[in-house]
Amino acid sequence: MDWQTIKQEVTVRTSRSSGAGGQHVNKTETRVEILFDLRNTTALNSREKKNIRYHNKRKIDKNGLVSIIDQSGRSQHTNKTRAMRRLKELVSDGSKPIPKKHVGKAFTASRGKRLDNKKRRAEIKAGRGKIRY
């Protein structure tokens, strides 16, 4: 992971923030949206991209864009800093390896208990037929 290259590949968009703030919110663009193209980046290898896609499925759209929005602060600078920090966490946490699936077997006692229940149930159903004398 090359963080300097990621910082250069990031697209930053600003807009007016929603919510309370009086006149200040009506005239300043404090909302920051950071877009990072995961599919076309050169800063990550294919394994890292795959791991990030696995760990952050909900944050990546179908085109491979990671979108991070921050509008919690009153200044654009602090919102941009927070959003970049969140992107760095997302990329570093997401590049952890994909955990291997654990395929477990049923316990022997559980298997026996299940078969006993099936036999009992079969006997109950067999007893529902016509009575022959």
Rank of each mutant, 00 (worst) to 15 (best):
R132S: 05
K80Q: 14
R53I: 07
D61S: 05
D37Y: 00
K59Q: 13
N56T: 01
G73N: 15
T78Y: 11
R114P: 01
K7N: 10
L90C: 07
S95G: 03
K49Q: 06
W3S: 05
D2M: 01
R121D: 09
D37V: 06
R114T: 04
K125S: 06
R13S: 07
R13F: 06
S18D: 01
K88E: 15
D70Q: 15
T81K: 13
R47S: 04
F107E: 14
V32S: 07
N117K: 15
L35E: 11
S15C: 13
L65Q: 14
K101H: 05
R74D: 04
E29R: 15
P99C: 05
S110L: 08
K113A: 14
T11W: 00
K105I: 03
I6E: 01
H102G: 02
I131P: 02
R86G: 04
I52R: 09
S72Y: 10
I98V: 12
G19C: 10
D93V: 05
E9N: 03
K125P: 04
V10Y: 03
R111Q: 09
R132G: 00
T41P: 04
I52W: 11
R120M: 04
N51K: 06
H102Y: 08
T78K: 14
I124S: 04
S72M: 08
R31F: 02
I69F: 04
A126I: 03
R82S: 13
R47E: 15
R86K: 15
W3Y: 14
D116C: 00
K59G: 09
L87P: 08
T11E: 11
R74A: 00
N117L: 13
T30A: 13
V10F: 05
L115G: 02
T78C: 00
K50E: 15
